[in-house]
Amino acid sequence: MFKDITLGQYYPGTSIIHRLDPRVKLVGTLVFIISLFAFGSISAYIVATIALVIVIRISEVPPKFMLKGLRAIFILMLITALFNLFLTPGTELVRIWKLKITQEGLRMAMHMAVRLSYLIIGSSIMTLTTTPNQLTDGLETGLRGLKKLHFPVHEVAMMMSIALRFIPILMDETDKIIRAQEARGADFDSGGIIKKAKALVPLLVPLFVAAFRRANDLAMAMEARGYHGGEGRTKMKPLIYKTRDYVSYLIFLLYIAVMFLASRYIKIAWPL
């Protein structure tokens, strides 16, 4: 059941997007997300859509693969959109029993739907084309400045990369524990919320015990291999900007400029 989630997964490939410096991809994603919220016009959304389609094409990740993984998250989004739809005060359009749909609500819901789905698609392009280690390396190097503020940049990055390494292992373990307890007649599916929560105990206890054990073993193995924090460490794969990375930064600037101009000078009215 966990296996369908592709967010955070890596889709191996050799496209130019795959080869970009992870810092570029992090900044790019950030720029894209900010642009969605900063420019809330239809013309801006059209520019964002075009940009998104182009990037997906270049990345060579099959859109099907990407969308399949997002299914679960779209449901969450739908709920958010519904909240916006019904709970925004303003000019009433339709009234169903006690719930009213307002023009503002409708607009807000559409805004949220577009922004959230693009946000998720945008960031999943980043995770699909960047290995977890590159991503954490990118974060670590990109956030190096924060070290002066005593923010544990290296530690956080190391924690992230270890978490990413162990998530598949723990998922597999969860699956085995579920089976082992089902073999003892455990029932995880029926009953009310309280009964269901209680039924989780036989799953959670072994899972925590296993996770702690792994953490303990791992800490020892890391120490045995000379790990003593980020101090004095060298890198096997240091991040070095190449021409394509600088070009990408230029493209980001260009994108912002187009976004700005489009939402300023091309007015497209909202339907409804």
Binding site: T131, P132, N133, S161, I162, L164, R165, I169, R213, R214, D217, L218, A221, M222, R225, G226, Y227, H228, G232, R233, T234, K235, M236, K237
Partner: peptide
């Protein structure tokens, strides 16, 4: 499983030397 730190084989092998500087 509990002693391989990295998500790619070669990166794991590099982990020790990285720590040694």
């Amino acid at each position: 499983d509990n002693q391989i730190i990295a998500s790619v084989v070669e990166e794991d092998v590099g982990f020790g030397p990285e720590n040694m500087g």
